[in-house]
Design a protein around this nucleic acid. Structure first.
Length: 553
RNA sequence: GCGCCUGUAGCUCAGUUGGAUAGAGCGGCACUCUUCUAAAGUGCAUGCCGCAGGUUCGAUUCCUGCCAGGCGCACCA
């Protein structure tokens, strides 16, 4: 029995009570069920009686007793107890509870997937680091969280396109080109330019590919350095992200917006919507009409288009491609963008509550010897995605970055990364994958046959640890759905850590395979089903985080 | 000054429509392997859930104020 089925059963019990005239209240559309902390409180608890107490004008415990009376008649329920201020503690019949394992195994990779976000077309933009330097640790957090979110949204049935916006127009590229040129000439990095070893490396690569640039006049060499440097840097970024398991559906160039005239078009479109005006020689968008702090310049007095103008064109482009919702994942240093992006959507005639969602993530703070290490491309003291992967590997890196809420700053001690690697919770979770695999492999070696459905006897799974495991496994679809709706991948990770603990305790207390001369029993076979179900959930969950489910560790 | 985020165990952090004795991992102490992987399990210790009010039968959760930390407030990108 799944939580959803139980939730329906409770609802039916409530309406039965209402129909019998015992309860004068509206039947709630949803029944909130939660897994209990201890088995003394049964498998699931609901606070429905306390919620209905007020409208029904009866004490909560009395309401609880009434509902319990009806709920006890439902099939698959062994016990209903009224506890505390009016909780209904429900214990499932072990046969009904155990059938969940069968459903999970049959569903396989589909278990946890849903239609919650069906038909929603979502554009998910993340990382979008300037192609003027490597992907640093701050971006890496977005790579891990963003890519996981893409997988989770898809699991919830949304139609998602992940996208990387390449800021390849503007002065940053010129600074980058100047820095490369300086490095190629053996000069120090220009004021306001980029330093760091990667600049010298790229400059050397360019000279290797195009030796004639060594003697070319600066004016001729500069564009070459810019274009070649851009290509090399972007290739490096793409490569790092690919190795990190991050896939993008679209790599979108800012330049292409300017080149195709879409920036001008966007300004014209917004002008016809009536939100554009001219002042002091500049062209403005009146974002203050929609709650922004101040109006935003789209074209400066010198005729240059601002970054925001390109943003506007990019937004309109996304909408024209049919996306209902555009998710922007930005660092905390960009939180001032929320207002203008939402206002931009309003100016374009959209409802920003639907079409724009800005996820602000706090920055990753690096400590080295108790001192904060600033991440700056200019200073050249960057810890990059590649650095972190080299230290701990893709799995641990992705998991570590994705397991915390993006609302909280992440403090990572550079020196502790390596040292703590074996203690990373990712191994605690992955160990479940390895254990479940080994158990099944050993069972096959012993010649145990458990795959036919008739070898599964859910009613034998009566141990508390089996009940806890079943309840935990049953939670997975709800966790995935809420992670998708709230755009919070860390919920998957936290759930899996909990599931891992529950499984380890089951493994420790409930012998799955026969010992020595012991005969193979139905209980062994049934526990193998539970083992398989756990492996299914753990691998599905790890896949959503882009982390492998190893067969051995 | 204004705005956003955060403040929970020694450390890193969970805790969504308010609920039962506030949790996990790591770290500390003490235990458990001749039998499925001990990267595990069991027990113990450590908490004015930043502070003060308010709403409520009930607040870590909601509201207000204050304190502390981070990050922003360009005709930069």
């Amino acid at each position: 029995m799944t939580p959803a089925e139980l939730s329906d059963a409770v609802q039916i019990a409530v309406s039965a009570a209402v129909q019998a005239g015992e309860l004068d209240a509206e039947v709630p559309r949803e029944v909130h069920l939660e897994r209990t902390r201890t088995r003394e409180h049964g498998d699931y608890a609901t606070n429905i009686a306390m919620q209905l107490a007020k409208p029904a004008r009866k004490p909560p415990r009395e309401v609880a007793e009434i509902i319990a009376g009806h709920l006890r008649r439902a099939s698959g329920i062994e016990k209903v107890a009224v506890a505390g201020p009016g909780f209904l503690n429900i214990t499932l019949d072990s046969g009904a509870a155990g059938r969940l394992a069968y459903q999970i195994v049959v569903a396989g990779t589909a278990y946890g997937r849903s239609e919650t976000l069906r038909k929603q077309r979502i554009n998910l933009e993340f990382v979008s680091a300037n192609p003027t330097g490597p992907v640093h640790l701050g971006h890496t957090r977005w790579a891990a969280v963003g890519d996981s979110l893409r997988r989770i949204l898809e699991a919830a049935g949304a139609d998602v396109a992940s996208e990387y916006y390449i800021n390849d127009a503007g002065v940053q590229m010129e600074k980058f080109a100047n820095s490369l040129l300086a490095a190629a000439r053996g000069l120090p990095a220009p004021q306001d330019g980029y330093g760091g070893q990667y600049i010298a490396d790229i400059a050397a690569k360019i000279l290797e590919a195009a030796p004639h640039l060594a003697d070319a006049p600066d004016a001729d060499a500069l564009p070459e350095f810019r274009e070649r440097g851009h290509r090399l840097m972007l290739a490096e970024i793409t490569g790092s992200l690919e190795k990190f398991g991050v896939h993008y559906d679209v790599w979108f160039s800012e330049r292409s917006l300017h080149a195709s005239g879409r920036v001008d078009e966007a300004i014209a479109t917004l002008r016809t919507q009536g939100h554009v005006y001219d002042l002091d020689g500049a062209i403005w968008l009146r974002t203050t009409d929609f709650g922004d702090d101040k109006d935003r310049v789209m074209v400066k007095a010198d005729g240059e288009k601002t970054y925001f103008a390109a943003d506007a064109a990019y937004y309109l482009d996304k909408r024209s491609r049919g996306f209902d919702t555009c998710i922007y994942m930005l660092g905390a240093d960009h939180h001032g963008y929320i207002g203008r992006l939402r206002a931009l959507a309003s100016c374009a005639g959209d409802d920003p509550d639907i079409s724009v969602m800005v996820l602000i993530g706090q920055l990753v703070k690096l400590l080295q010897g108790g001192e904060e290490l600033k991440m700056s491309k200019r200073a050249g003291t960057i810890v990059t995605l590649e650095d972190m992967v080299d230290l701990v590997g893709v799995d641990a890196a992705r998991y570590t970055l994705a397991r915390s809420s993006t609302d909280s700053q992440l403090v990572i001690d550079v020196e502790e990364i390596t040292k703590q690697a074996p203690e990373n919770p990712v191994y605690y979770v992955q160990y479940v994958a390895a254990r479940t695999f080994r158990v099944a492999a050993n069972a096959r070696d012993l010649g145990i046959e458990w795959s036919p459905p008739e070898s599964f006897h859910p009613e034998l799974l009566t141990d508390d640890r089996e009940a806890r495991l079943l309840a935990a496994l049953g939670d997975f679809p709800r966790v995935v759905a809420s992670a998708a709706e709230l755009r919070e991948p860390h919920r998957i990770a936290r759930y899996m850590e909990e599931l891992a603990g529950v499984y380890h305790r089951f493994y420790d207390g409930c012998r799955i395979l026969p010992r020595g001369e012991e005969e193979v029993s139905d209980l062994h076979r049934s526990r193998l089903w539970l083992n398989d179900a756990t492996r299914t959930v753990i691998s599905n969950g790890l896949a959503m985080l882009g982390v492998s489910a190893p067969e051995r560790m």
